[in-house]
Simulated scan of single mutants.
Amino acid sequence: MTAEAYKAINWNRIDDMIDKLTWEKLVEQFWTDTRIPLSNDLSDWNTLPLNEREMIAKVFGGLTLLDTLQSQDGIEALKKSSRTQHEEAVYNNIEFMESMHAKSYSAIFSTLNTKAEIDEIFEWTHSNPMLQKKAQIINGIYQDGTDLQKKVASVLLESFLFYSGFYAPLYYLGNSKLTNVAEIIKLILRDESVHGTYIGYKFQVGYNQLDETEQEELKNWAYDLLFRLYENEIEYTSHLYDDIGWTDSVGIFLRYNANKALQNLGFDPLFPDTAQDVDPIIMNGISTGTSNHDFFSQVGNGYLVGMVESMDDSDYEKWMS
């Protein structure tokens, strides 16, 4: 009996052009945390009140946990339903960058915090009930959900759950503080914009092949999941920001991004909050451009492709048309 031939991936024959476009976008955006001069933020860090430094440490600890979840379990779960070799290759790229994101937070910790403080941060991430709850909800779907449910969970993680943590560095950026730390966050935001859009697109491809009854059941399940995560996220946000006085403003930002996650899935918004309701300092910071335009120049002009902008709404609309 002749064994089935092993197939080499052929990028000259593409079934879905979105795979090729996304691969190219992700490669153009490649970056590493070692190219950002984080130590330049130490003077800002040392002037912050203790409660703000503790809040920032928890914020980045939480983000580390979520990126670890996405890199170790999330993308691996999505790869199992890849329709083509090209789609799997894109997921491989996303998986690596999620690991880069998780590592980048450790680069921030090693610059701003003592070893004892870092140990405390990671102990907090392992014991905080709200943080652990959202990780367990998402990972439970990665382990036991259907292929389309896994994509819903991934989009909600990429496009919604990260943003309670992103708020703080964007706020400091808007006030000209911790600008290099915020530069890393903007690079991560740029990646997550592509990840959420791409995985949402792949969800829609599968969703559109379901009959009306199946679509309605899955849509209701997705909204129920979002609301369950939102209730926990509001509690988590309160834990992080009550002492600083930012909880209400962060809540608006969360609801705005929850609607963006639904948009990525092709669903209608759930909340009334729009970009006009979000603090303009945060909306200015969420722009996916970066300021350190020459930070790759030391290692050759080929890395300058990392300066390109991420996919925006016009790209998304072009894909969907």
Results as ranks from 00 to 15, higher is better:
Met97Ser: 01
Asp44Val: 05
Gln72Ile: 06
Ala77Cys: 06
Asp73Ser: 12
Asn128Leu: 07
Glu117Ile: 03
Thr34Asn: 00
Ala77Tyr: 04
Gln70Cys: 06
Leu112His: 01
Ile36Ala: 05
Met55Thr: 14
Thr64Gln: 07
Asp73Arg: 08
Thr111Ser: 04
Asp33Trp: 00
Thr114Lys: 08
Tyr105His: 11
Asn139Gln: 13
Ile36Val: 15
Ile94Gly: 00
Glu117Trp: 04
Gln136Tyr: 05
Ser82Ile: 13
Gly62Ile: 11
His126Asn: 15
Pro129Thr: 06
Ile141Pro: 10
Ser106Thr: 13
Leu50Pro: 04
Asn113His: 15
Met55His: 07
Gln72Trp: 06
Ser104Cys: 08
Leu63Ile: 02
Gly140Asp: 10
Gln85Asp: 10
Asp73Glu: 14
Thr114Ile: 08
Ser106Glu: 05
His126Pro: 02
Asn93Thr: 15
Ala107Val: 02
Glu87Arg: 08
Asn128Arg: 08
His101Phe: 05
Ile56Phe: 14
Phe60Ser: 10
Asp41Cys: 01
Leu131Lys: 06
Thr64Cys: 11
Thr114Cys: 11
Ala116Glu: 14
Lys133Tyr: 09
Leu42Ala: 06
Thr111Met: 06
Met55Tyr: 00
Leu38Ser: 09
Asn46Gly: 04
Leu131Cys: 10
Phe96Met: 09
Ala57Lys: 09
Gly140Glu: 05
Phe96Asp: 01
Thr111Phe: 00
Ile121Gln: 00
His101Asn: 05
Val90Arg: 07
Gly74Pro: 08
His101Ser: 06
Glu95Ile: 11
Leu69Ser: 06
Gly140Ala: 07
Leu78Gly: 10
His86Thr: 11
Met130Asp: 13
Met97Asp: 02
Glu54Gln: 12
Phe60Asp: 02
Ile94Cys: 02
Gln132Tyr: 07
Leu65Trp: 03
Lys133Ser: 10
Thr34Gly: 00
Leu69Ala: 06
Glu95Leu: 14
